[in-house]
Design a binder for these strands. Structure first.
Lengths: 210, 210
DNA sequence: CAGGTATACAACCGATCGGTCGTTAATATA
DNA sequence: TATATTAACGACCGATCGGTTGTATACCTG
């Protein structure tokens, strides 16, 4: 029951469609994205989608999974190269800013767009978006807790509190850089987290000065 | 050429429609909001809109103005009651969090939704959204600069940098409280700015301890 | 009271939406 | 080789989209 030629081709086009869907959804949202435009952008027919997905919602859920894997590959994985503790925490922040600054997605951040789109309406997609945010927040919180355990952050640090600050300061770069500040927003976001971590770190030499 | 009875009625329904439009747009966005649903929500006919607005874009622009006035009345004005300086700066942050926490708009924040919606597409609406964000950011920056001038914040403070931090920490409450944290997000956002200001303030007794 | 103006409406328009149906061609399995 | 299975398609469906047109009614001005 291994992958034969035909299913392989199917998988390939499936992945190609999901990649385009995530890119387009980072601009117009998962619901704002229409199947007709997605078909035009991928050079396929609209009706062909329903061989891969039962309906639009299933495609949205798979696009969410695809974006999660992209985030794991391009943001989380590079940061894990840094030594555990406060350096990995800051590497995570910098990897995210690099992801935005490099313009990997045309809309800047898939998750930002989708969170803003679904935070108010019920449904399967909303639940998966909420889970993705929860897991991301929990992941940052664990990195903070680890840094505290290693003695690289003050004992008094509230991990969930600091995780919120790091995420908020990183996330708002998307809209500020596009509507207002340009690259300056990246500088602000980087410096905000860097100085916050340095202030809480008994050995600030672990982090760059500026 | 003063307001006569008829024009007054027109103005009243115009304001009522804009209020509903802002409330609905805080959930579905300015473009996601359809004229048909807005008509149903206001108990009027869709075609009646075109007596007040040339097209949907004009209605969107007026809704933006309406939301700006609402923000000025319900967030900025109350904060101006606090004495200028670091106390007014924090009052501004608290007024915003109260606006979110009280659920004044069903979607939490009109501007958050609309920024996420329009940060990627060109047009008149996008330009006005960008201007609103720029003016808001500039307003916070002036409050920071004033606090520095009064000696209530350290001389070394970069006003634009601190303004970005205050705005980002306040804005991300919307999505975090709705998708993840609930009211805890409000606590995180409040404490983050409070502790940041206290750390920069030569006389921390101007601000609450926690 | 006459005439113009503004509010608001129902009916309707072409375009697009998500989705269905029936078919074709290529592949995998027996 | 015979038979399912699968990817992919064009044509089409009812619903909804933003927007137009024509009309009825209420109001203000002359």
């Amino acid at each position: 029951m291994t992958q034969d030629g035909r299913r392989l081709r199917g998988l390939r086009s499936r992945e190609a469609i999901l990649e385009r869907a995530v890119a387009l959804a980072s601009v117009e949202g998962l619901d704002g994205l229409s199947l007709g435009r997605l078909a035009a952008a991928t050079g396929t027919s609209k009706s062909g989608f329903f061989a891969h997905w039962r309906d639009k919602e299933q495609l949205q859920l798979d696009a969410l999974d695809w974006a999660t894997r992209q985030w794991a590959d391009q943001v989380v994985a590079p940061a894990m190269a840094a030594p555990a503790g406060v350096r990995r925490l800051f590497a995570l922040h910098e990897a995210r800013l690099r992801f935005y600054g490099d313009g990997v997605l045309p809309g800047g951040c898939f998750f930002f767009t989708v969170q803003a789109e679904f935070d108010d309406r019920p449904g399967l997609v909303r639940d998966r978006v909420a889970r993705a945010l929860r897991e991301w927040q929990e992941f940052i919180r664990r990195q903070v807790a680890q840094a505290v355990a290693q003695g690289e952050l003050a004992e008094s640090v509230d991990a969930a509190q600091l995780a919120y600050e790091i995420d908020a300061l990183g996330e708002m770069v998307v809209v500020h850089s596009r509507l207002h500040d340009g690259p300056v927003a990246l500088v602000h976001a980087r410096r905000a987290v860097l100085q916050r971590l340095r202030a809480l770190c008994p050995d600030p030499t672990l982090l760059p000065e500026d």
